[in-house]
Amino acid sequence: MLSLPYNSSTPVLYINKNALEEAGLDPEAKPATWPEVEEILVKLKEAGSECPLTTAWQSWVHLENLSAYHNAPFATEANGFAGTNTELAFNGDLQVKHIDKMGAWAKDGLFSYSGRRNEGGARFRSGECAMFTESSAGYAGVKAEADFPFTVTNLPYWPEAEGAPYNTIIGGASLWVMSGHEAEEYAGVAAFLNYLSSAEVQAQWHQDTGYLPITTAAYDLTKEQGFYNENPGTDVAILQMTGKAPTENSKGIRLGNFDQIRAIIDEELEAVWQGQKDAKAALDEAVSRGNELLRRFEQSTR
């Protein structure tokens, strides 16, 4: 282990039950696939919704996780894990199809873009947006602020992709311990990390925030306490992450200059949502701009 995973989460779909009911839909609906989601979006729009669907973290949810979830490569060389000579690959058929669909939804008023980070959260929690793809860690905020009943369900997938859905991947952060300190300081660090990863602390952290528990013991403890039964949907993220044995494409992503690459992806996706570029052109451009950054990174590691 390089560092201690801490606030890890994975994207899920949040649904405002009242919005479904007002549109004459089954409020308990849990659409599993994007075509099922589309049917609901059309009805929501017909019923007058200004924002049937929005998202947070578009690159993470709609390209990185989309790719892992359908066992499609985001980048070559096992998403960068096998070497720094990796090249981006998220302009494949599946990703182009998905972004093209979302572009069409944006044009038709079925999908409303909120911003690059999690600006969409306020719009979902206030009831403006009916459906919201966001990190499982958005749970605490939704639970605290939304004055309507909501569903948390799996990120939808495309049924025609072979073997889909695979597992989704994590986002978040981890704790690093730096070298160069005194032995007794490390003893303190170790005690603190042991405390943080103890089942009780992890279970509480997981239940309060929606972040994933980092140990099986914390998951089992949460189950024992009956939390998942009382709060349906809170185990969706865990099951979705661990549902299948991860493949080369769904283990995670390791790329240099990834922050800048995500900014490029944001820029190109915005061009799609504005209707300035089609999905294929935007993703091709993002791949080629991103590859330049990867080559730059490769040089710096030589």
Partner: peptide, 9 residues
């Protein structure tokens, strides 16, 4: 804080 350079560039 306002735009992160976007939309687009």
């Amino acid at each position: 804080t306002m735009t992160s350079g976007g939309p687009g560039q």
